[in-house]
Each structure stands twice: as structure tokens, then as C-alpha cells.
Amino acid sequence: MSPSQIENKLIEPEPEHCPGPESNVAGKDDACKGCANQEICSSQIPKGPDPDLPEINKRLSLIKHKILVLSGKGGVGKSTFTSMLSWALAADEDLEIGAMDLDICGPSLPKMLGADGESIHQSNSGWTPVYVSDNLGLMSISFMLPDQDLAIIWRGGKKNGLIKQFLKDVHWGDVLDYLIVDTPPGTSDEHLSVTSYMKEVGIDGALIVTTPQEVALLDVRKEIDFCKKAGIKILGVVENMSGFVCPNCKHESQIFKPTTGGGEALCKELNIPFLGSVPLDPRIGKCCDSGECFFDHYPDSPASNAILEVVDRLRDQIELNLNSLKIN
């Protein structure tokens, strides 16, 4: 199945300043004049929820924990961390893990998890994800492309359609303990869609990845602001690429200098949990390029320990969440 088969249901692309079909002014806004879809939007039919929502909810209710991996900034290690988190959780054989790659224009997870070039299968129960190991499934648009280098030049609406299908049609098995959702940088269509589709079932929270320099933190502040607006709990912030130890002389350099105090200071300022910092290790990048598990190869490295510590703290946060729910 090629992405071109995924249809867009609008008659025409939405106009500039489209208030969105769920909005109160849908069909009545100035921007709606002349839009071919105006009649649909302005009709008196109650703007009920998306008719696909019950099905999405049914799928998602089988998943115990849902975690979003977010960052306003690109290239800070969202996908790297998603892959690490997946490996780390999947090390526990009793857990079923799913990883979903929502970066549609630049999917990296298949390469990092060593599933490059695979394709997904379709069955009665839906799309079957690609299994990287017995208990770790992966879903990415890259499995649907005829050519790996093909550019996906899609506007927002089309991306939303695919995200919806990912949530509605992917069959993760009878039970899934963790679904880890990797996102593209920014605060736009993908983020809005995934949060609004998952809202009813509930998201455990978001893990925010940053690097220490202020230029990255600036974008991360925006992402935190987005989470607050969207009502997503922030499980914590992890600071990636903090400090590099020269393999030759063991001198530690701050490549991305935390001139404003880095992730930890940001967390204090905004009163959110800081989960730890992970040092830059060139071997992480190499493992990602070859799709191997970093912990298996370098279990004793400082980076390995740092990542596992972050994963532990993250799980604490999630379980803390659950406990508080029970009391209520």
C-alpha cells in the first residue's frame, strides 16, 4: 500500500486561516467565504466528535501506557532516545513494547532499530507492525515507501490522515504495555493531531528531550508551553549531548555549552522533573546507524548507565501517575 492511496476527505485544500472544522466559527469565519467545504462546515449538524474516534479509542484502550517523546528542537536526540527507551523497556521479557514514528517527512526509527527496508503487512485485524525483537514492534511511514529516498512532500492535512490511520488501524497485539510515540520537531499538525486523537483515552505524559545550549532550550520552552496548552502532563526533561569526554585524554568538553544553566535550570524555573543528562558518546551514533542496541554492546559505558537511570526515573514518574489515579 502506497501513501498515495491514503485519501484526503476534503473536497479542496483548506483555505488560509481555516479555523478548523471543530471550531465554533467553522463555516462562518471570514476565511470560509469561497471555500468549497463551507457548506459542510456551516451546516447545523452538531459538530460531534470524529466518527472514527470510538474505533481509535478501542485500539488505544488496549495500550496500558502511552508516552510521547517531544522536543521543539530538531536533532536533539528524540529518535535516539525513543530507540534507547524501547530497547531498555523491551529488555524486560514480560513487557510488550510498541514504538510509533510520527516523523513523516524524516523517519529515523526504522534505521535506528535495525528494521530498515522492511514492510508492513495488512490483515483483517489491521496493519501489523514490524517486529524488531519478540516484544518490540515498530510502525513508521518508511515501511510504506517504495523507495527509501523518496521525499514525502505532504501538507498538514494529509499527515493528519496518516496519523489517524496509525492510531486506528495498527494492530499491536492483544495487549501492549508501552507505546512510545516519536514526534517530529516543532509544534504543528502532527502534535495537534496525535494529542487530540489520544485525548479521550489519555496520555501518560510527555518526555521532553533537549540539548544544553540556550538556542535549543528556547525551542523546548515552546514545546513545554504547548504541553501546558494541550493539557499533557510532562513526565520530565532529559538533557542529551551534555559534555563530551575525549577518548584520548579524558578531558571533558562542553560542546553545546549550557550558558544559561542547561536543562536542569530550565526544569527548576518551570517546576518540572529533571530526569538526568546523557553524555555525548560517538558510539551511540554508530549503533544508531547500524541499528544495534547500544546497551548490548557497551553495557558499562557512562552513557549506558545515564540512559538506564533516566529510564528508571521515567518509569517511576509513570507509576506515580497511576498511583495517584487509584486514590482518586
Binding site: 485544500p13 483548506e14 483555505p15 488560509e16 486561516h17 481555516c18 478548523g20 521543539g72 501538507r155 498538514g156 492535512g157 509544534t187 504543528s188 499538525d189 502534535h191 495537534l192 528556547l218 520552552r221 515552546k222 514545546e223 513545554i224 508551553d225 504547548f226 496548552k229 494541550a230
Partner: peptide
């Protein structure tokens, strides 16, 4: 400076 710009495609 910390404000997020949460915009869908057409607005961008």
C-alpha cells in the same frame, strides 16, 4: 520568548 506557536499548515 517562551510562547509556542501552535499552527496547522494553512496558517503557516
Amino acid at each position: 520568548r517562551g510562547d509556542s506557536v501552535v499552527w496547522r499548515g494553512p496558517k503557516k
